[in-house]
């Protein structure tokens, strides 16, 4: 099996002056290419930390990460990390993190801006993905004019526009009602099945997790299954 993400002996410790918190403890995990993986566990068990480390948004205290075959060293430059995030990763956040001052069309284009894609090409591709998530009638709207489900669709469109191999979704349905949540899950499944994208999803929802290829569970920073 081709591996998209490989974590070996990953530890993450948060230190303050008086307290030391082990957020992840000796995590060894492989995610195959095209796999849809769910990460479950109670709040504070390290799920989001795991996702942040996979997404190069945070650095492990120790251990190694391989992403799409490239070993991520601690001395990798900021620019290289930025390029990897831009080309290989797409993020879907629980609270969407859309930029309030930009329209749907502009929000979706963001990854392509930092890849140096020309404006007309960006707009063409943005329209394509927005259509794919079913929001072509909302392209000029601002995030504040959209429902939660629509915002998450925009966030998914933004995550996939750069055609990344991996999508990391942190509780993508956490802020949505069940109906909208089901819609979003359908969309993620379609992306996984049709485009063979690797998806790692943090969720509290057992039902949604069962629909994915594999579930890993965490407790107190340790992988328990």
């Amino acid at each position: 099996m081709e591996v998209s993400i490989k974590l070996t002996g990953v530890n993450k410790i948060y230190r303050t002056e008086s307290v030391e918190t082990q957020a992840l403890e000796n995590v060894n995990l492989e995610v195959g290419r095209g796999e849809f993986l769910s990460v479950m566990g109670p709040s504070g068990c390290g799920k989001s930390t795991l996702l942040n480390i996979m997404g190069l948004l945070d650095v492990p205290t120790s251990g190694t990460i391989e992403l799409c075959g490239e070993r991520i060293d601690s001395h990798l430059s900021d620019n290289r990390l930025a390029t990897l995030r831009n080309r290989s990763l797409g993020f879907v956040f629980q609270s969407f993190h859309l930029i309030g001052g930009l329209s749907v069309l502009d929000n979706v284009q963001i990854p392509l801006i930092y890849r140096g894609v020309g404006r007309s090409e960006r707009i063409r591709r943005a329209k394509e993905v927005i259509e794919r998530v079913g929001l072509s009638h909302r392209m000029k709207h601002m995030p504040s004019q959209l429902s939660g489900g629509q915002c998450q669709r925009v966030a998914i469109a933004r995550a996939v526009i750069g055609n990344p191999e991996i999508i990391l979704a942190d509780e993508p349905t956490g802020n949505l009602d069940s109906h909208m949540g089901a819609d979003i899950m359908d969309l993620l499944h379609r992306l996984n099945e049709e485009d063979r994208r690797t998806i790692v999803m943090v969720t509290h929802n057992e039902q949604q997790a069962r629909e994915t290829d594999r579930i890993v569970k965490f407790l107190d920073g340790r992988q328990i299954s």
Binding site: A82, R85, N86, I99, P111
Partner: peptide
């Protein structure tokens, strides 16, 4: 942070 997450350089 969102822009950096999607590949913007500092």
């Amino acid at each position: 942070a969102v822009r950096r997450a999607f590949g913007a350089r500092k």
